[in-house]
Computed example of a mutant assay.
Amino acid sequence: MSSPDLFQECEREERIGLRLFTILDTVLREQSVSRAAVQLNMSQSGVSAILARLRDLLGDPLLVRGKNRLVPTERALEITESLSIITGCADLLTGRTQGGLNAIVPRKCLIACVDELSSFLVPAITAEILGSSEHTTVEFKSMDSSEVFEELGSGRLDTAIVSGFETCSTGQEFLGNDELVCLMSDENRLSRQSYVSSAEYGQSNQVVLASNIRKPQPALDVVLRNAGLWRRNTIAVPFVDVIPHLLERSDLLFTTTRKFGEHYAALLPLHIGRIDVTLPNVTYYQITSVAARDPLRVGWVAAKVRLACAPRFADAEVKEK
């Protein structure tokens, strides 16, 4: 088919539009029709049909089947950056609604949350956002600090709640502090003591988040070692919500924050024990994307996260940027 014929067909049937660009961009990013369908809230067959139309219109397979995923063709890689710009502009123009004079309501929010806060912050943030806009979708991501900064820097993440043992630096919004404690079963012999000694701490089997042992010297282990503590990491699991149930049925300890401990101690027969050493507080803060093409949209998301966090960090002096 010649170029004029292709142009006339597209013009007549209006087959190339912002929606098709958005679908193609999503399929290329996900490199999977099924995952793209979930992201787009479409059926898999619907996405496959549109991909077939785009292949015909652009005269290229765009994606070919690889071992575990769809692999973009050379032509697809050439247009990826342009697609990202087009879909970003489309989101800016059509992906939000004006709820009032200064009200910006985005179509989608992308938020990262530190694992040990996800149990009670994710529901609170979701309620805050959906209570303000029934047409907004929310995607939460779990990632370590290095991934968070990379995603924020690329604009693929709107905002993130992260933790550390240092004071907030420029660009970080303070949310609150929390102390480190030992969470354990009510049946654990250490639960009958007023505190856990350094010797008892080092002799106890402990469960850790799998993400906490990816690096040779994770921040928590460095803090514990500086305080003269050593922990025996016996069990490692990647799901933080599984840990309280492991504690309930064992003599394991879990070094965590008081807020996490209080949340699960109210639901399960668990005990929160103090450690007989001076440890620094965990600091929680919010970081927003500086690479977003639509800062008003990111500001709306950050404000909703702030409102959801405020009552759960009663000790926080929330500072406006």
Rank of each mutant, 00 (worst) to 15 (best):
T126V: 00
R189D: 14
V162N: 03
V223Q: 09
Y201F: 15
R214A: 12
P216H: 07
Q206A: 12
A227T: 04
A227R: 05
E200Y: 00
V208Q: 07
G176Q: 10
Y201Q: 02
G171W: 10
G171H: 06
Y195E: 07
M184R: 03
L224P: 05
L224D: 06
G164R: 01
T167Y: 00
E166Y: 01
S197A: 06
S197V: 07
R156V: 03
F165E: 04
T137F: 00
M143L: 14
E179Y: 02
L180E: 06
L175A: 13
S198M: 08
I161G: 04
Q206W: 02
S154R: 15
D178W: 07
K141W: 01
F140I: 06
S169A: 07
F140K: 02
L209Y: 10
E128A: 14
L190K: 12
R189A: 15
S204L: 05
I161F: 01
K215E: 14
R214M: 09
A199K: 10
E179G: 08
I161E: 02
S163D: 01
E179T: 13
V148E: 06
Q172K: 14
F165M: 06
S194C: 03
G228T: 08
S169D: 02
L190E: 13
E173D: 08
R192Y: 12
P216T: 09
N226D: 12
K141A: 10
L157M: 15
D144V: 06
E173P: 00
S146H: 10
E200R: 12
E139C: 13
N205W: 07
I213C: 02
L157N: 12
A227P: 02
R231Y: 02
V207M: 12
R225V: 00
F174S: 09
R214W: 05
E128S: 09
S163T: 03
Y195Q: 12
S194G: 15
L152Y: 06
D186W: 03
F165N: 07
G228R: 11
Q217N: 14
V222Y: 03
I213L: 11
A199T: 07
V207C: 14
A227V: 04
T136L: 05
G131K: 07
T137P: 00
G202N: 12
N226A: 09
G155T: 07
F165Q: 04
G164Q: 02
V223Y: 02
S133Y: 06
S191P: 02
S198V: 14
V223L: 07
R189I: 14
L224T: 02
D186K: 15
S211C: 03
Y201L: 12
L220P: 00
I129E: 02
A127D: 11
E150S: 12
R231A: 04
A160H: 04
V148D: 05
S132C: 03
L152H: 05
R192L: 13
L152N: 04
